[in-house]
Amino acid sequence: MAGLGLATSILFSACTAQKNVNAFVTTADQSMVFKPLSIPLDNGSSADANTIVLNPAVKFQEMDGFGAAITGSTCYNLLKMKPEDRTALLKETFDPVDGMGYSYIRISMGCSDFSMDEYTHCDSVGIENFAIHELDKRDLFPILKEILAINPKVKIMSSPWTPPIWMKVNNLKDLKPFPSWVDGQLNPAYYQDYATYFVKFIQAMEKEGFMIESTTIQNEPLNRGNSASLFMTWQEQRDFIKTALGPAFKAAGIKTKIVAYDHNYNYDYPDKEECADQVGYPEHIYADADAAQYIDGAAFHAYGGD
């Protein structure tokens, strides 16, 4: 998707022998919404700042895919549509031949800030009580199945907004229970249980036919104020990966990629003083060989900073 200024976005799909480009145009005033247009091209005799030159002979990093989040509220609203309208929308989005061909989606492990309720997959104390939540079975599963029927190659990333709240403490000094969906930190005493939570989630999803290609450790780990959240420094994430999650994946034969960080380009959110030592968050984890052996890369939210 190429943004042209702030008002218009254009998705380019193909060039023809007549030197036209097939584009889908959306404008900010919604006078055009994903409208197909055939745009004639000139002979390219003079390049300007808006010219994109493709050289198939030069290759760099391969893209795994492009896509969007499939949240609880997304699924709820999709299921409120007429089945034929929903199918048409999903085909327009995910069909690799007749649609945009979205190939990567992100789902939450438990609730997100766009869910119908607050929940995890283990709200009763004890990891033995793990079970996929009924809201996911009701809303998420049918949508995922329909998407995969349209494009079986779609990859899925999962991300938790919060661990089960019985795993939370107020801070790592006092270690007092912190039964809140918002804020708190992960009790190191539950590192192994939380790693098992990830394993059980991935295994349960695979059993339903949903392969989890990758997972992050925590959505916006430096944001204490989200409607479901957990504050997790790079030091905590490093230790959780190398002492619990990585070994748990290895022991269970889990091939899902582990992705670090998962937050904005800048590192001063929400409080500069508190996050002063968090600059270079994923690089600190890369620098630890015991943690780095388990991770595949880092996730960034494309807003906030450069």
Rank of each mutant, 00 (worst) to 15 (best):
V199I: 14
F300L: 00
F24D: 04
A299Y: 07
A252Y: 03
C75V: 10
L78S: 05
I212E: 04
A289E: 15
G67S: 00
S13F: 15
S227T: 14
M116W: 09
L37V: 13
F60L: 15
K168W: 12
V154N: 11
V97W: 01
K155G: 09
T120W: 07
L148I: 11
P270A: 13
A69E: 13
E283K: 08
M81F: 13
S13T: 15
E134C: 07
T51Q: 00
F130A: 05
S124W: 04
A289K: 15
F130V: 09
D193H: 07
A292R: 11
Y303Q: 08
S159H: 12
Q30N: 13
K250P: 00
P56I: 04
L186R: 01
S103H: 13
T51I: 04
F240C: 04
D95H: 06
K255W: 09
G5R: 14
L37W: 10
I202W: 02
S46M: 05
D239F: 04
I132G: 04
Y286E: 07
K137G: 10
P247G: 00
A251T: 14
A23H: 13
A260M: 11
L41S: 07
D42V: 06
K207N: 06
G253H: 06
P163T: 10
H133S: 03
I143Y: 05
L175Y: 05
V154K: 14
K80T: 07
D139N: 13
I258F: 08
N266V: 08
V25R: 02
L245P: 00
F240L: 02
T120K: 08
N151F: 08
G253V: 00
V182L: 09
P152F: 07
Y104L: 14
S38K: 15
S115W: 09
Y76D: 11
A302N: 03
K257M: 08
A252G: 07
E146T: 00
K155F: 01
Q185W: 04
V53W: 03
K272S: 15
N171L: 10
D139R: 01
I107C: 06
V33A: 01
A260H: 03
I241H: 01
G209N: 07
L175D: 09
Y102T: 00
V259W: 14
L186Q: 09
V279Y: 15
Y197R: 06
G304F: 12
N266D: 15
I295Y: 03
G209H: 11
A228W: 03
N219G: 13
L175V: 06
T215W: 07
G209Q: 13
